[in-house]
Write a protein that binds this DNA or RNA. Structure first.
Lengths: 207, 207
DNA sequence: ACACAATACGGAGAGCTCTCCGCTTGACAG
DNA sequence: CTGTCAAGCGGAGAGCTCTCCGTATTGTGT
């Protein structure tokens, strides 16, 4: 099936400050490559770290030392697009980036996040099965902080942290997957629904 | 009790036990008892079905035949209180039951659900790790239908099904657990936050 | 009372996640 | 170049979830 990567040497990447030893970095990359290929060819739900290790010619211990657990490896696979998304909402052009009104940026952010989740749905499904720590650590924290900041501007009277959680919650991969596959909602309908809730929440409270 | 079956095959109905052989019923009860005891003494996250089987003196196959998987067994443990809750919001006194205004019932329902999740938090955490089928089947469907019905009355112009999902999403056990244990929110604060969102969503849209 | 489906049973075993620990290797000072 | 040792490595193994299938039990029609 998959051609084995065993024995092939990885070219060293220059320019990156490396807190890792060379062999460790090489293994990390090999593992990521193999995992990405296996997911592409067989689907994310079939991902077995045992098998990844075998295919990458490393011990299973190495996989776990590098990535902690299943969810950690999956985050690494998600990472590249995630970074691009973070750049977009932190320093890209409006309405996602700075320059637009807070309420408008909230809408753009949530719509963008729906797209992101949908575009890597099976990976996000896997992440959500991981430990709470991996779930609410890393990217979730970044999204939450960003959204809470925007909400604090749009609605200074409400609790922005709770509001951010509440707006992010309906974007979880399991719910979106269920809405799309079992209830027949389209991505556009989901985005419209999210937008209407965001609008209700960011509107000035009725007098 | 169940009416006579007259040779007809009964379809499995969620929540209603289908006619079981005497030995099967005996085993189901033994398994539930043992599982409840083990959870009480050691915590839900330590629940091992292998061990439950051994302790209940049945084969592990029996456990899985009865309950399908881990999440199925956990639902069975949750079931009794869940039924009481369902009765309360379907036919109990207002504001949870019929008689109050829809928006008020939405608030009471969500507050009640927060209490329910918190009161059996570790069981709900376990359920959320199960398959999407078990997660969105059974009780979720009941909650969703009820809430969507109320929302359709309160806000005839919006999509009540999506809205119901979006209001239920922030009540997931993992988020509540994280908010309470990591961010130090109290249950009352969570309920207040949920209430304010429900209020925003059920309010008439601004002109 | 008895036979015979239908139903349930037990537990071996496949396959997984993750831990542990004795051995190996890379980085660097001298 | 070489010695040192923190960092990294592999894979055996514990413990789990869930499946499979030959065997045993139950309830029913006669």
């Amino acid at each position: 099936m998959l051609g084995s990567v065993c024995g092939r040497r990885q070219l060293p990447v220059v320019g990156q400050p490396q807190p890792e030893r060379a062999d460790a970095a090489r293994n990390r990359q090999k593992i990521i490559d193999v995992a990405a290929r296996m997911i592409e060819s067989r689907g994310a739900d079939q991902l077995s770290l045992d098998e990844v290790a075998k295919e990458a010619c490393v011990g299973v211990g190495t996989v776990y030392r590098r990535f902690g657990d299943r969810a950690g490896l999956v985050w690494a696979l998600i990472d590249e697009r995630e970074r691009r998304f973070q750049e977009a909402f932190m320093s890209g052009p409006p309405p996602l980036g700075p320059g637009a009104a807070p309420a408008e940026r909230v809408g753009a952010f949530l719509a963008g996040l729906v797209d992101r989740v949908v575009s890597q749905l099976d990976l996000f499904l896997l992440v959500e099965l991981g430990s709470p720590k991996s779930r609410f650590g890393g990217p979730y924290r970044v999204h939450h902080t960003h959204l809470a900041t925007l909400l604090a501007e749009a609605r200074p009277d409400a609790d922005p942290h709770f509001l951010a959680d509440a707006l992010l919650a309906p974007l979880n991969a399991h719910l979106i997957s269920y809405q799309r596959d079992e209830r027949g909602l389209t991505v556009e309908e989901i985005k419209a629904g999210v937008a209407s809730i965001a609008a209700a929440v960011t509107a000035r409270p009725a007098p």
